[in-house]
Design a protein around this nucleic acid. Structure first.
Length: 611
DNA sequence: CCCGGAAAAT
DNA sequence: ATTTTCCGGG
């Protein structure tokens, strides 16, 4: 209700403000790290290095300082920060690169950025048949939608369930569905998708569905490889980007370099020419209609988003179908009406989907990490478990069962989106400064193995597949017909997916940039950067993050936000650092405004805001 | 340095 | 639920 309101766009509230849990939603450390990583200004203190998601904290004290500033914890120091980082190990968000000081690695395998909330596969198919070019196809079939009772599904474990917050089904879907898919399959898919697109259909996305659902049809590793081989091959495939040493260390240590290549073939070239136009305007008509091209773009968008963080691409997930929501179109807020299928019905996803579930659930599940310790113990006791077995613990699915997701969408990635015309997104209006960006990320599970690294093999799991699969609940709208309790399972099991093949992309940070123009906005404003001098310099921001854009939209439509923003910001009072330029006051000029907002947002982001 | 347990704080 | 503190142990 509240929010967006009327405009239509609806985004899930969660987007705006997730649950309420009190302490919860502050910026998370990993988000912060990612933010720092994406800004060149901070390259002296922290930067991507190595392959994949590896990064090195070059100036631990500074990073700690920045973090402390962000959290208003002046006493922060690297020791503490690192402890926090260590907590991510079990969550599988991060890994430590052994042997290298201050070097950690994001698990993008599990971490997926979801920028576009709506994506998910399901939607497209149905709704937009025509559009769905190749991809979606499966659409019909696969569609998964959010089960009405997702919660259970998600967290089988029970525990928590996430909150009742308010997440829309979408979110969920995203989270799990996509995400999950992503995790493993993701990578694969992505490429595949591209490939297919490029090539032409390929088998269509069939696989996709398969992948997700349960079937493992062709997505086996082999298959994947093959695919990659083809496509990738031509691309130049991977590449070893930099010599860095991820592996090196690996050699020494544990790591296992993934078979896949850390490097990933990304290549800029690959992506298409898509250029994000800053202007973007999705607005009105745009919309969805996408064709193969669009698809590609879409994919790219994802890619970009990843890039924005300078992450390695692996993370992308691709959804076979994309959905595009069209904000404007919807007039009703999802939330309330969600149900209104009208739109949905044929169209998309948007979210609401089902009312039934408007249940919120939170998205983050925490996985059950067993600690290595436990693992160890287990091993010790039992001896070696099966390798795969490790999952033993996992219980049935072991492997990947959990996932957590987060979501966010915002900023950076955004750029990409719009271009496409996909309107997606969640915007967060304001409010949080801190939230600044949130991207959604989800992490998916992976499983054990992790320690070493990436996933690689893990294919089997799906074998059993279970049958049914899931969700397709699309139809359910109000009737709820289908709703057998089946879906749930799938997710877990399923989502594990096969192993991901290498994706693309070299991680090298700089390289990406070239690719996308966007990027970079910088904040500056170092709060008080104390002694160091690296205060970042501001640079002109060109791109506009989605968020802003949306915002912009909002403003136009409703400017309430502005007020809020300001409000929020207003508190700042001290000119201190940030003062800078943000005056968002104006309401009118959209462009300008947006730019400003953009900027402001950017700045806000990292540093701080005073406490 | 890095690792995590534990307790407290948010 | 996550992060901050504190801390003993490699």
């Amino acid at each position: 209700m509240k929010t967006p309101g009327e405009t239509g766009f609806a985004f899930p509230e969660w987007a705006y403000k997730p649950e309420s849990s009190p302490g919860s939603r502050q910026i998370q450390l990993w988000h912060f790290i990612l933010e720092l990583l994406r800004k060149e200004e901070y390259h002296d203190v922290i930067a991507w290095q190595g392959d994949y998601g590896e990064f090195v904290i070059k100036d631990p004290d500074e990073v700690a300082r920045l973090w402390g500033a962000r959290k208003c914890k002046p006493q922060m120091n690297y020791d503490k920060l690192s402890r926090a980082l260590r907590y991510y190990y079990n969550k599988r968000i991060l890994h430590k690169t052994k042997g290298k000081r201050f070097t950690y690695k994001f698990n993008f395998n599990k971490l997926v950025l979801v920028n576009y909330p709506f994506i998910d596969m399901g939607s497209a198919g149905v709704g937009v048949p025509q559009s769905a070019p190749p991809v979606p196809t499966g659409a019909v079939s696969h569609f998964r939608f959010p089960p009405s009772t997702p919660s259970e599904v998600l967290s089988p474990s029970s525990e928590e369930l996430r909150s009742p917050g308010s997440f829309s089904s979408m979110a969920r879907r995203l989270a799990r569905g996509s995400v999950s898919d992503c995790s493993d399959g993701t990578s694969a898919n992505s490429e595949i998708d591209e490939g297919s697109l490029g090539v032409g259909t390929a088998e269509e996305r069939v696989p996709e569905r398969g992948f997700r659902s349960a079937v493992p049809p062709r997505l086996t590793h082999e298959a994947l490889y093959r695919m990659y081989g083809n496509h990738v091959g031509h691309r130049g495939h991977r590449a070893h980007p930099e010599p860095l040493s991820p592996f090196a260390s690996a050699g020494s240590g544990l790591l296992a370099p993934p078979p896949l290549s850390p490097a990933l073939p990304v290549t800029a070239g690959t992506h298409l020419p898509y250029t994000p136009s800053p202007t973007l305007s999705p607005m009105p008509g745009s919309i969805f209609s996408f064709s193969a091209e669009d698809m590609q773009r879409y994919l790219q968008a994802h890619t970009q988003s990843v890039y924005n963080y300078h992450l390695s691409p692996r993370a992308l997930f691709h959804y076979p179908n994309v959905v595009v929501p069209q904000p404007q179109r919807l007039e009703k807020p999802l939330q309330s009406t969600a149900e209104r299928p009208s739109v949905l019905t044929h169209s998309y996803p948007l979210a609401p989907a089902d009312d039934a579930h408007h249940t919120p659930f939170k998205f983050k599940l925490q996985p059950p990490p067993l600690g290595r310790k436990q693992q160890r113990e287990a091993q010790g006791h039992q001896g070696s478990l099966g390798s795969s077995s490790s999952s033993a613990l996992g219980s049935s699915l072991s492997f990947g069962s959990d996932l957590s997701s987060g979501i966010v969408s915002n900023s950076s990635s955004s750029g990409s989106l719009n271009s496409t015309g996909l309107p997606k997104i969640k915007v967060e209006p304001i409010s949080d400064i801190e939230s600044e960006e949130e991207v959604e990320v989800t992490d998916i599970s992976d499983d054990e193995g992790d320690e070493r690294d990436e996933e690689f093999f893990s294919a089997h799991r799906r074998d059993h597949h279970h049958h049914h699969h899931h969700h397709h609940i699309f139809g359910r709208q109000s009737n709820g017909i289908s709703a057998p309790p089946q879906y749930d399972d799938s997710e877990e099991d399923v989502f594990k997916a096969p192993a991901p093949p290498p994706l693309f992309g070299a991680p090298s940070s700089s390289s990406f940039r070239g690719t996308m123009p966007t990027v970079k906005s910088e904040p500056d404003t170092p709060p008080a950067s104390s002694g160091h001098g690296h205060t970042p310099l501001p640079s002109p921001s060109q791109c506009i993050p989605l968020k802003l854009r949306f915002k912009r939209r909002w403003d136009q439509e409703q400017h309430t936000e502005e007020a809020e923003d300001k409000k929020v910001r207003g508190d700042k009072k001290n000119g201190e650092s940030a003062g800078i330029e943000r005056e968002e006051s104006e309401s009118s000029a959209p462009h300008k405004l947006s730019a400003e907002l953009h900027r402001a947002a950017a700045q806000l982001s990292l540093e701080n805001k005073d406490c």
